[in-house]
Every structure is written in structure tokens, then in C-alpha cells.
Nucleic acid binder design. Structure first.
Lengths: 220, 220
DNA sequence: ACCGTACTTTACGCGGTGTCAAGTCTTTAC
DNA sequence: GTAAAGACTTGACACCGCGTAAAGTACGGT
């Protein structure tokens, strides 16, 4: 943590009046406290439903502290994305997919990863979606992260191609486009969140479509 | 084109009290002028990139006039949706699909309709997407309109089922879910807008997936 | 004792939504 | 011919969110 509370001034015009936890010995530092409350509130009320004042209050801090740490709402969101991916263990899950025994297994692992991971982050993804369309600068930064995600998928499709497991006439680029689209958060939201499908059914559906579209007839 | 212009009762999508449109010799009444500039500006700068003041200015009117006609930004957006669907001739396109000679033809017509219609409205759809996630009241009204769209798709899938053209184990509900998802604006955006596919390729892809998933093996 | 760090308080400027009240101009109705 | 009704304008205000600025306060280390 950092400093302590000077005196719990309470009744600040800024709107704190909270009971500030921030366990000094606990281990949560200020930055994490902000990220935690930001995530909770944003997932609950959406991008425009939460102001930085509210985030700060929930973290037991002043509004300015948020600006001190993240510079802007955009900065907070960007940091939030990285933090959540780290907290939710995205890298570990990706490592599993990369260590698959075959190209087809890697593709299936990618689908499985998505079915497991998306439920953890789709609410935040909805927030980011709005942020993208509200803030061009955020959108630019977001595209970078998405390009990274696309490269992961492209690598698997390339693997398929090199192993001769890609259907005739299917280029790596087209295949990647299809994987990208079928594994998008949008599609998960449509099927699982809005239409009530189970993640198992979602996974089976996506896997089936990808197999039929990407693999040669004998494998699909 | 401000205050003169006598009667000329026209379609009032909103169904509000005073229907009173005015058509100068030119033909565009105030309401339409607002809708037109709103559409242009919103598609260009997004939901939060345009204020009602700017919309009004572009229409050559005062900000209050917008409130007089639509009550709020939400009201304007809702009216805009109806107006655009009417201007773009959605009903006519739907009639074509409904008059298809067979269930499978109707399904294909639905896909074709989407491939033709979505390019005209996907920019506005992005705006509405943000509005939905920023304004719960708008979201509620939006769900109504989407339910209507879903019923159209459900009718076609029901037609398939009644004609015995639905794959074994595929319920009307599941089939409708799949059609809904594959014809979503999101999927169009991913493939055509973001990944640069032609609408023909998009259409062929969606049609293929739907045929393979929905129709029995001999037809798919 | 001193300085740097972390956080707080208070105060602006800016821009957007939504509301109110009064005023202008034009058409319609008596 | 005048009065009422309709359509739109002007100007002002409350409220809230973002972002910035400038002091001020508490603590830790040297």
C-alpha cells in the first residue's frame, strides 16, 4: 500500500465517506485495489455507467489517485486488460494449446481455451467494446492486442497447412479469418449469454464448424 | 425550411401526438432533416462523438427543436432505427424472402437479404450497439425490435422443419439460434468490414455453414 | 532534521444531456 | 382584422463526467 489515511476526513465533497480497506499488511497495493474495483464496477454498470470518482471511492481512494496511477480512463482500461489476462492466467492456457501433439489437436485446444476463458472475460469485453467505439485512441491500442490474438490463431492454421490438414483451396489467411470469427466474443455472447447455450454445446458447435470448413473432407 | 410549411400528414413512426409534418415545396420536413443529419453524423463519429447540438446545427435547426421532436437522444435513436429500415426498404426485402418457393429457398433468401442489407446499416448498428450498452432503457426497446427479427428467422426454420428439411436432432429453437448468430451484424463486421471479405464470399460462407448445420445430409 | 513519495483536498474548464421560460414568426380560425 | 395555435429560436440553468492544476498532509528513509 503506501501511505495511510491522514485522518479519515469523511464527508469530503468529492464523495468518499467510505470505510477504506486497503490492508496495509495484506499485500494489495493501491494500483491493484483500483484495478479490482474498476473491474467489478465496470462489469456491473458498463463503461458509461461508472465514473472514475466511483471507482476511486470503491477502492477507498481519492479520484486524483486514479489519475496519478493511470493518467486517464483509457489508461485504466488498458491496464485493466493486461491485469485481467494475467490474473485469469491466459498465458498458461495458451501454453497448453501450443504444446498440443498435432495441428488438429491444437485447433481443438484453441476452441476449448476459448470456451473456458471467454466466460471469465466477456463482461469486461463488452465494456471494452464500448470504449473502443467511444474513444479512437483506445481503439488503436486495442487493435494491437487483438492483432496479437490473431497471430496466435494464424500460427495454428499455419500448422494445419504445414501438416497438410487444411482443406483444398483454403488459404492460411482465410482459415485464420474463419477461426478468428468463430472464436470471437460476439459469437460466444450470442450463443451462450443471449441464447442460453451451455459452453459445452457452444464448444461442440464451433469445433464442428471449424472442422468442416478448415479440414479436408476425410478429417472434417 | 423552418417554420412555415402547412400540413402534409405523413407517417409518424413514433406514433406520437402531433403528427403534423410539413413539406415545403422541396419535400423534406423538419423531422426528416433531423433524422438525416443524425444518421450521417452518428455513422461518422459514433454515439458519443456526436451531441444533439451538432445534429441540430447540421440540420439547420436549434437544439431545442430536436428535443421538441424526439424528447431525448434515446428517442431520436429509436426513431432513427425505424426510419432507416423504412428508407432502406427492409419490408420489401423481407417480402421477397417470404415469397420464396421452398423452405430452403427461403433460408437462402434470408442469407442473401442479410448480405445485401447489412452493408447499408452496419455503421448505424455499431452506434446502436454502443447506445444499448450505455442506456438500459434503450437496450430494452432494442430487444423488442430484435425479437421481431428473430421471429422472422424462426418462421423460416419452422418452415424447414415442417417441410422435413431440418437435420435429425435439430430443433426449431436451436436452428433459429444458429441462423440468428450466423446472420448477426457482428459476424458480418468481423468478416467483411474487418477482414475484408467480399459480400459474395461472406454470403457463400454463411450459406454453407447453415446448410451443413441445419439441413439433413442429403440436402446439406 | 530533511527530502521524496504517495495520497488528499479544493478548485477550475470543458462539454454533453435534459429542462424551463420567454420570445418570434406564420398559418389558421373566428 | 385580429386572435389563437403551431413551429421554431434564444438564453439560461442544473447536473454530471473527464481531465488538469496547485496546495497540503503523512510517512519512510537517510
Amino acid at each position: 500500500m503506501s501511505r495511510q489515511d491522514p485522518g479519515r476526513p469523511d464527508t469530503t465533497p468529492n464523495g468518499n465517506a467510505d470505510l477504506t480497506q486497503r490492508a496495509t499488511g495484506g499485500g494489495l497495493d493501491t494500483r491493484t485495489a483500483i484495478l479490482r474495483s474498476a473491474r467489478t464496477l465496470l462489469e456491473q454498470h458498463g463503461y458509461h455507467g461508472v465514473g472514475l470518482a466511483e471507482v476511486a471511492r470503491a477502492a477507498g481512494l481519492s479520484r486524483q489517485t486514479v489519475y496519478l496511477h493511470f493518467g486517464s480512463k483509457r489508461g485504466l482500461l488498458l491496464a485493466l486488460v493486461d491485469w485481467v489476462d494475467q490474473v485469469e492466467g491466459l498465458e498458461e492456457l495458451l501454453a497448453v494449446a501450443r504444446s498440443a501433439p498435432s495441428a488438429v489437436a491444437a485447433l481443438d485446444a484453441l476452441v476449448h481455451l476459448t470456451a473456458v476463458y471467454t466466460p471469465r472475460i466477456y463482461k469486461l469485453a463488452a465494456v471494452l467494446e464500448v470504449a473502443r467505439r467511444s474513444d479512437p485512441d483506445f481503439d488503436a491500442a486495442w487493435q494491437d492486442r487483438m492483432a496479437h490474438r490473431r497471430r496466435n490463431m494464424g500460427a495454428v492454421v499455419k500448422w494445419l497447412a504445414d501438416a497438410g490438414d487444411l482443406a483444398d483451396g483454403m488459404s492460411v489467411k482465410s482459415g485464420t479469418d474463419i477461426v478468428w470469427t468463430m472464436l470471437s466474443v460476439h459469437l460466444f455472447e450470442d450463443l451462450v449469454v443471449d441464447r442460453g447455450w451451455s459452453t459445452e454445446r457452444y464448444q461442440a458447435f464451433v469445433e464442428d464448424v471449424l472442422h468442416h470448413r478448415l479440414l479436408p473432407p476425410d478429417l472434417g
